[in-house]
Amino acid sequence: MCKGLVNRILPFSSVDGPGNRTVIFLQGCNFNCLYCHNPETIGKCRACGKCVSLCPYDTLSIVAGQVKWHEEGCKYCDRCLEICTENSSPRPVKMTVDEVAEKILAFKSFISGITISGGECTLQCGFITSLFKRVKEIGLTTFLDTNGSIALWQESELISLMDMAMVDLKSYDPKEHRVLTCMDNEVVIENIKYLAKVNKLYEVRTVIVPETLNNYYNVDMISKLIVSLNSSIRYKLIRYRPKGVRLELIDSYIPRDEMMNELVKLAAGNGCENVIVV
């Protein structure tokens, strides 16, 4: 049985797609964004055991060569995350589709569907395809929150089971994208075009980071791209927030309302019909 490495499951979310959604965050990411606000979801645990001895509440142990987390006593002080040198966490657990489905069923009455997020969830393509299949049987909608780095046009089964996707386009400039994420944006842009073509692109997102990114250029180009595909696709501009980030990698601040308003105006002026700011 194919298992997924699950960082956590958020029962209710108002910000991960339409309506109320249960969000499954998978562990592991192929990007390493300078502004990542949950860097502990990037790496995989190597069972070095550093966190085990440092946990003030004795909720960690090593079992069969793996770090095991005992949720009951955890006070979420995040000491384990601070000490980890692998951008990882002792909390992710391997779960089968049935185990995740059981959690989802408990919330079924209250949700429109599920969103799989990360980390980068498409790195576990087999698992998310099986999970979507199961969720469709339950009668809920399936959304994907992805960095768009995996060629989705090659994942026909996944795409057929997925209702819609939300894709980050962090920078339009390939060089800047590489500096920011360690990877190119070519596949990301192709994915955006492909998903729009098959009417499965719910939202494109860009984080606005003052004095770090070429924000005006990015919003200008990305909004033009969206309009060339389908001007009603939602464009979400996200304010950078210095919460949870690795401050040694990034020195920025929350963009002011005036800046966000200018960017909204820019995107709307290019023809984007649905621009929102969070």
Partner: peptide, 20 residues
């Protein structure tokens, strides 16, 4: 205040609550 951008979220919750 973030839910103001997604009222369907609350409608889902109300529908579920009444179902339960």
């Amino acid at each position: 205040t973030t839910v103001k951008k997604n009222s369907q979220y609350i409608l889902d919750i109300i529908k579920g609550s009444f179902r339960e």
